[in-house]
Design a protein around this nucleic acid. Sequence first.
DNA 1: CTTGGAATGTCAACAAGGCTGACGTACTGT
DNA 2: ACAGTACGTCAGCCTTGTTGACATTCCAAG
Lengths: 164, 164
Amino acid sequence: MAEPSGEQLLYLTDEQLRQGIEAMFFAYRGFTADPDRILDELSYGRAHHRAVHFINCAPGTTVNNLLNILGVTKQSLNRVLRTLIADGLVESRVGRLDKRERHLYLTEEGKALEAKLSDAQRARMRAAYRKAGPEAVAGFRQVLEAMMDADMRRNYRALREPRT
Amino acid sequence: MAEPSGEQLLYLTDEQLRQGIEAMFFAYRGFTADPDRILDELSYGRAHHRAVHFINCAPGTTVNNLLNILGVTKQSLNRVLRTLIADGLVESRVGRLDKRERHLYLTEEGKALEAKLSDAQRARMRAAYRKAGPEAVAGFRQVLEAMMDADMRRNYRALREPRT
DNA sequence: CTTGGAATGTCAACAAGGCTGACGTACTGT
DNA sequence: ACAGTACGTCAGCCTTGTTGACATTCCAAG
């Protein structure tokens, strides 16, 4: 894939890049629009969505682990987790091996919300993928991955792995 | 490295879509990281960046027009504009045709900041584009455009048109 | 010409969700 | 025993979203 086969390797004018920047801006808004609507009705915010999403991906994850993935402070995350636990969407279990740790799980209710949010977001993603075609999707993913910070790319790849 | 490039057609499993969602999340963070650092030093935020960016793209635009592009309330935008005007980065001129309107322009100082932010963001975008290759970039843009809301796509395309 | 309504922009106040700092508690490993 | 780690929490700040109230300006109907 790293072989450009000549072609127009260099069409990286500032104008092209600016368009990419704006596309990213508008697309991200579309990307979050559907979940945001659902969240609003429950008086939750995007922060709750992120927490629920990653707890679902990695059941039993610790608070500290989640902190690294989300890139926020523990105070900030804790505020969100507190409401999710109080509302019975997330369960926090004291670690067996290390009792200082809290392992986080979605309850059935939590899974239901996650599914609802996920479905909405996937629907848009699926529509976009269909419209653009498989090859475009491969390119899309490559550029996104190249755009991440190195340490985030590690997190991202860790989440993609089948299982350890 | 284990990136599927092109071959398989219908791989729109929920798992694949979930990966796309996460890639979008992490990539957007990388995307805004560099400007955020610059902004922080000046005690501005992302909102200032967006305003400066789009005023630069469309000099003389009205507040209302900017509102539509940015998708926030006028009160929210106004707060940001007020500080930018107070700091001498943006100039607001009363409309000649319609005196209710305010036309917005970047001052020299404003243009300097815009260039600084833009350079940082473009550098990352350029690096990602280089790494992924021209074909990936085309796919990237296609998927992003398909992911926008319809009305935002209009704004996006309007901004891509040659100058008026 | 007047007047009411629409459009535009400003000010005030509030909420969500970031942040830092400080501190308490429970546990771990040396 | 003790230093360090993991987590929770309180207090307070900032940015940036929101609504509500209001001033100005324009325009069109009476």
